[in-house]
Protein backbone atom coordinates (compact mmCIF):
# COMPACT_ATOMS: atom_id res chain seq x y z
CA UNK A 1 0.00 0.00 0.00
CA UNK A 2 1.57 3.22 -1.15
CA UNK A 3 0.65 6.46 0.62
CA UNK A 4 1.45 9.96 -0.61
CA UNK A 5 0.42 13.38 0.57
CA UNK A 6 -0.85 16.00 -1.87
CA UNK A 7 -1.51 19.65 -1.20
CA UNK A 8 -4.86 20.50 -2.77
CA UNK A 9 -5.62 24.22 -2.44
CA UNK A 10 -3.92 24.35 0.93
CA UNK A 11 -5.44 21.12 2.23
CA UNK A 12 -3.35 18.04 2.87
CA UNK A 13 -4.96 15.07 1.17
CA UNK A 14 -3.57 11.58 1.57
CA UNK A 15 -3.68 9.30 -1.43
CA UNK A 16 -3.50 5.59 -0.62
CA UNK A 17 -3.09 3.13 -3.46
CA UNK A 18 -4.78 -0.20 -2.80
CA UNK A 19 -3.52 -3.08 -4.93
CA UNK A 20 -4.39 -6.69 -5.62
CA UNK A 21 -6.67 -8.21 -3.02
CA UNK A 22 -8.17 -6.66 0.07
CA UNK A 23 -9.45 -9.44 2.30
CA UNK A 24 -9.15 -10.96 5.76
CA UNK A 25 -5.39 -11.35 5.31
CA UNK A 26 -4.59 -7.67 4.84
CA UNK A 27 -7.73 -5.88 6.06
CA UNK A 28 -6.38 -5.59 9.61
CA UNK A 29 -3.06 -4.15 8.45
CA UNK A 30 -4.93 -1.51 6.43
CA UNK A 31 -6.89 -0.47 9.51
CA UNK A 32 -3.70 -0.33 11.53
CA UNK A 33 -1.67 1.68 9.06
CA UNK A 34 -4.62 3.97 8.42
CA UNK A 35 -4.36 5.21 12.02
CA UNK A 36 -0.82 6.36 11.21
CA UNK A 37 -2.02 8.10 8.06
CA UNK A 38 -4.72 9.82 10.10
CA UNK A 39 -2.01 11.48 12.17
CA UNK A 40 -0.85 13.18 8.96
CA UNK A 41 -4.26 14.11 7.56
CA UNK A 42 -7.90 13.17 8.13
CA UNK A 43 -8.66 13.55 4.40
CA UNK A 44 -7.85 10.41 2.45
CA UNK A 45 -8.50 9.09 -1.03
CA UNK A 46 -8.33 5.34 -1.54
CA UNK A 47 -7.21 4.84 -5.13
CA UNK A 48 -8.74 1.45 -6.00
CA UNK A 49 -7.80 1.43 -9.69
CA UNK A 50 -5.37 -1.43 -9.09
CA UNK A 51 -7.57 -3.25 -6.58
CA UNK A 52 -8.73 -6.51 -8.18
CA UNK A 53 -10.71 -8.13 -5.41
CA UNK A 54 -12.38 -7.18 -2.17
CA UNK A 55 -14.35 -9.34 0.23
CA UNK A 56 -16.47 -8.50 3.25
CA UNK A 57 -13.41 -8.33 5.53
CA UNK A 58 -11.74 -5.84 3.19
CA UNK A 59 -14.94 -3.89 2.98
CA UNK A 60 -15.16 -3.91 6.76
CA UNK A 61 -11.62 -2.54 6.91
CA UNK A 62 -12.47 0.34 4.55
CA UNK A 63 -15.64 1.13 6.52
CA UNK A 64 -13.54 1.04 9.72
CA UNK A 65 -11.14 3.56 8.16
CA UNK A 66 -14.08 5.79 7.26
CA UNK A 67 -15.36 5.62 10.82
CA UNK A 68 -11.95 6.65 12.16
CA UNK A 69 -11.70 9.48 9.65
CA UNK A 70 -15.17 10.79 10.51
CA UNK A 71 -14.23 10.82 14.20
CA UNK A 72 -11.41 13.18 13.27
CA UNK A 73 -13.80 15.27 11.14
CA UNK A 74 -12.24 13.94 7.99
CA UNK A 75 -13.42 11.62 5.22
CA UNK A 76 -12.38 8.69 3.09
CA UNK A 77 -13.23 8.97 -0.59
CA UNK A 78 -12.90 6.23 -3.13
CA UNK A 79 -11.62 6.44 -6.69
CA UNK A 80 -11.22 4.19 -9.72
CA UNK A 81 -13.33 1.22 -8.61
CA UNK A 82 -13.36 -1.47 -11.28
CA UNK A 83 -16.65 -3.16 -12.14
CA UNK A 84 -16.05 -6.14 -9.86
CA UNK A 85 -15.11 -4.11 -6.81
CA UNK A 86 -17.99 -1.71 -7.51
CA UNK A 87 -20.38 -4.66 -7.53
CA UNK A 88 -19.36 -5.60 -3.99
CA UNK A 89 -19.97 -2.02 -2.83
CA UNK A 90 -23.38 -2.02 -4.49
CA UNK A 91 -24.32 -5.48 -3.24
CA UNK A 92 -23.53 -4.64 0.35
CA UNK A 93 -24.97 -1.12 0.05
CA UNK A 94 -21.62 0.24 1.23
CA UNK A 95 -21.59 2.66 -1.71
CA UNK A 96 -24.10 4.76 0.20
CA UNK A 97 -21.46 5.47 2.82
CA UNK A 98 -18.80 6.75 0.46
CA UNK A 99 -18.21 9.45 -2.11
CA UNK A 100 -16.99 7.56 -5.15
CA UNK A 101 -15.11 9.17 -8.04
CA UNK A 102 -13.84 7.98 -11.40
CA UNK A 103 -10.20 8.74 -10.62
CA UNK A 104 -7.95 9.87 -7.79
CA UNK A 105 -7.51 13.42 -9.12
CA UNK A 106 -11.25 14.04 -9.07
CA UNK A 107 -11.49 12.54 -5.62
CA UNK A 108 -8.63 14.66 -4.28
CA UNK A 109 -10.02 17.80 -5.92
CA UNK A 110 -13.38 17.17 -4.29
CA UNK A 111 -11.80 17.86 -0.89
CA UNK A 112 -10.86 21.33 -2.11
CA UNK A 113 -14.38 21.93 -3.36
CA UNK A 114 -15.96 21.14 0.00
CA UNK A 115 -15.32 22.22 3.50
CA UNK A 116 -12.81 20.15 5.50
CA UNK A 117 -15.15 17.40 6.53
CA UNK A 118 -16.83 15.29 3.90
CA UNK A 119 -19.98 13.28 3.90
CA UNK A 120 -20.93 10.34 1.74
CA UNK A 121 -22.92 11.01 -1.38
Amino acid sequence: MKFTLDNIDGKLVGIAELEGRLDARNGKSLKKIFLEWLEMTPLTVFDCSRLDFIDSSGLGAIVGCLRNALEKEGDVRLAGLNAKVAMVFELTQAKRLFSIFDNRDEAAASFAATAGSGTGQ
Binding site: D23, D55, S56, S57, A83, K84, M87, T92
Partner: peptide
Amino acid sequence: DPVSGASIVMEDPHL
Protein backbone atom coordinates in the same frame (compact mmCIF):
# COMPACT_ATOMS: atom_id res chain seq x y z
CA ASP B 1 -23.60 -7.66 -14.11
CA PRO B 2 -25.49 -8.15 -17.39
CA VAL B 3 -24.70 -4.61 -18.55
CA SER B 4 -20.93 -4.52 -18.11
CA GLY B 5 -20.49 -8.28 -18.38
CA ALA B 6 -18.42 -8.23 -15.18
CA SER B 7 -18.78 -11.15 -12.83
CA ILE B 8 -17.39 -11.85 -9.42
CA VAL B 9 -17.03 -15.08 -7.55
CA MET B 10 -17.95 -14.50 -3.94
CA GLU B 11 -15.56 -16.00 -1.43
CA ASP B 12 -17.68 -14.96 1.55
CA PRO B 13 -20.22 -17.65 2.29
CA HIS B 14 -22.31 -15.10 4.21
CA LEU B 15 -22.61 -12.75 1.22
